[in-house]
């Protein structure tokens, strides 16, 4: 569960719903998919609800670009 990312989870969730819609599954398979789907939908919703956008600014140092947290124009967090 720790390795889940949003894109993968969302795509897997869509895939599960499609698979179920096509039918032809035995009970055990569909119960497994159902459980996975519920887990994924909870994960995706949580991820979206908790997300706070991270903004970096790339600063060049000796030819290498480094990410620095971006605080917005006035040193404040950008208005979100």
């Amino acid at each position: 569960m720790n390795e889940m990312n949003f894109e993968g989870s969302m795509k897997r969730l869509e895939e599960i719903v499609n698979t179920l819609q096509q039918g032809n599954l035995n009970l055990e398979e569909s119960v497994n998919l159902f459980e996975e789907g519920i887990r994924l939908s909870n994960f995706c919703r949580e991820a979206l609800m908790k997300a706070r956008m991270k903004v970096n600014i790339l600063i060049e140092e000796n030819g290498i670009f480094k990410e620095m947290g971006y605080e917005g124009e006035n040193g404040e967090k950008p208005q979100l």
Binding site: A51, K54, V55, N56, E73, L80
Partner: peptide, 19 residues
Amino acid sequence: HDIIKVLSGRYPYVEVDIL
């Protein structure tokens, strides 16, 4: 400013690198 505002409003899950 516009880009950050819209991105964070629509999909704060994303990370943004500004160059």
